[in-house]
């Protein structure tokens, strides 16, 4: 994990890099979120008000101010996936993880989210875990993927 200071060093002190900074830092963080202290630090560095940074974070779905799990599981539910059994995929994930849309498991390992089209409709149904995309999903495939991730942690 790289520190916020190191991320900031990579970008010029310009407001236009705000979203890039937020995304890069959030990705590198264990719980994938921007804390209020992070907001203060960025606000000082870019010399823009904290309220402006918060309004940017709340506008964009991929940015968050609440902690998430180590793995953010985003399952697509738009029409091309829906007609290819995405509902079963979502239900399998609910069964395996014991949480539903927007929730995080008590061990902070997984957050489950229903998301918009991932641009993989040719290999639907699809989901994304952190920055990795998984396609042509079946309930059996899901089970393997989740078990593998659980195994990695142990």
């Amino acid at each position: 994990m790289i520190s916020l200071k190191e991320v900031l060093k990579k970008y010029p002190k310009k407001e236009e890099y705000l979203i890039e900074i937020l995304l890069e830092f959030q990705t590198s963080k264990k719980n994938h979120y921007i804390s209020s202290e992070d907001v203060s630090t960025i606000s000082e560095y870019l010399d823009i008000p904290e309220s402006q940074i918060c309004s940017v974070i709340s506008f964009y779905t991929l940015l968050s101010m609440t902690p998430k799990g180590k793995y953010v599981v985003q399952v697509c539910h738009d029409v091309p996936c829906f007609v290819n059994d995405a509902t079963n995929i979502y239900e399998k994930l609910v069964e395996l993880l014991g949480v539903s849309d927007g929730e995080t498991t008590p061990d902070s390992l997984f957050t489950l989210e229903i998301t918009e089209c991932l641009g993989c409709c040719n290999v639907a149904p699809a989901m994304r875990i952190n920055n990795e995309v998984y396609t042509s999903l079946t309930p059996a495939k899901i089970e393997t993927i989740i078990n593998d991730l659980r195994g990695e942690v142990k």
Partner: peptide, 23 residues
């Protein structure tokens, strides 16, 4: 420049705002 999960940013002026670092 990376989008951050907003469909409307595909619209020209929304994209311009986003490239400037704004909602």
């Amino acid at each position: 420049r990376s989008g951050a999960g907003s469909y409307v940013c595909g619209e020209e002026f929304s994209m311009i705002e986003s490239i400037e670092g704004k909602p």
